[in-house]
Amino acid sequence: MTKTTVPSLDGVDLARLPKVSLHDHLDGGLRPQTIIDLAREIDLELPADNADDLAQWFLDQCNAGNLVDYLKTFDLSTAVMQSEAGLRRVAHEFVLDLAEDGVIYAEIRWAPEQHLTRGLSLDQVVEAVQAGLEDGVTEVRESGRDIEVGQLITAMRHADRALEIAELAVRHRDRGVSGFDIAGAEDGFLPSRHREAFDYLAKNFFPVTVHAGEAAGLESITSAIFDGRALRLGHGVRLAEDVTVERSDDDEVYVNIGRLSEWVRDREIVLELSPSSNMQTGAVAAWGDELEDHPFDMLHQLGFRVTVNVDNRTMSGTSLTRELGLLVETFGYDLEDLETFQLNAAAGAFLPLEDREYLVEQIQAGFDAVRE
């Protein structure tokens, strides 16, 4: 799916680096050929009849510069994910693609309520995806590699099923589900709309990440933290609106961090940044239209717990390896920086403490191995 040559770093193949993926949408990462195969089974008309052209169509459609148009492409991917077999295949292949990308731990988010048009129940679709994920994990391990995955059950923020979806997530917490999220059109749909669901999750000690700070700004982030009790911010890139940088007449640089951004930084709330996607959706338009304008580096330098993510592999024609390569090219990061991003992600993973500590050990060992 990669459309750009991925640079190496000091001769190191970035694909070899162990990675943690926290913000990876299942319905945004289908293989184009799989879409074609599944569409044929249900007589669904596609904008292209071969995998390469379909992949390019997704890229072209997603470069609209706003989240609303970007999200329209999901009508096509979700349309072929309405049967147990289709969901299981997509989830299985998703894990294989993660492993090829060097991912050793991933939380895969998706919205069960969008996969019910052919008569499946909410529990059935969750079980179908879990079966596919387990198929993928088994195949990866049989190939001599290792990977762990979990589901992030997502509610659509413009709908009114958040409490029902929260209950679904908790119901499957010991059967593959790691956490809860809300997604969809962000602007005009604050997390406070779903306060009852978030209260229920808090009472059940269930971890939450919230899409915030992408298509909407600081009010959305504030609501994610206050109403949603979010441990992570899905994107959160517009938190940079709460940071001002001033240069004095004698060329001294002064950085002012607002109360909200100070809270996020000091409490190490994870930012799930997705560089390519953030450019496509216009999330960083206030700072410019080139990757070098993305506030990723500023947030990193100021000590925020930044992580690198793909958001949607198919829509952005990307991989986690490619995203790291783009950041290396743009900001001159070294292996220590890339390792920090993975350790940040490991620290924010919705895992028990002991498992997070083991994940940290795996990351450190993997980076040490490529340095030898």
Rank of each mutant, 00 (worst) to 15 (best):
A240Q: 03
M156I: 13
F189Q: 02
P207T: 03
S178F: 05
A159E: 11
A159K: 13
T154H: 04
L231F: 05
L163A: 07
G213K: 01
A166W: 00
P207A: 11
V243L: 14
V237Q: 02
R232I: 08
E186D: 13
A162T: 13
H158G: 02
F226L: 08
A224E: 02
H211M: 11
R229F: 10
T222N: 08
T154W: 04
L163T: 10
L168E: 01
R173A: 06
D227E: 14
L168F: 11
R193T: 15
L201I: 06
A162H: 05
A212I: 04
V210S: 02
F180Y: 10
L233M: 03
M156F: 10
D227M: 09
P207Y: 03
F205Q: 13
H194Q: 11
L201K: 04
V177M: 04
A212F: 08
F180L: 02
H158P: 07
R161G: 04
A215E: 09
D187Q: 15
V208T: 04
F205A: 14
D227T: 04
T244V: 15
A159D: 11
E219R: 13
G234K: 01
G176S: 06
V208D: 00
T154N: 09
T222E: 10
G228N: 03
R229C: 12
L163Q: 03
I225P: 02
T154A: 10
E196K: 14
G236I: 06
A185G: 12
G234H: 06
A240L: 06
E164T: 12
G188S: 05
A215W: 03
G217P: 05
A162I: 04
R232H: 05
A212R: 02
R173Y: 08
K203L: 15
A212K: 01
R157H: 05
L190R: 10
L152P: 03
L163V: 07
L201R: 00
P191M: 11
A224K: 03
H158F: 12
T244R: 09
A216M: 09
A224F: 05
V170H: 02
E164A: 14
A169F: 05
F205P: 01
R173K: 14
H158V: 15
G179H: 07
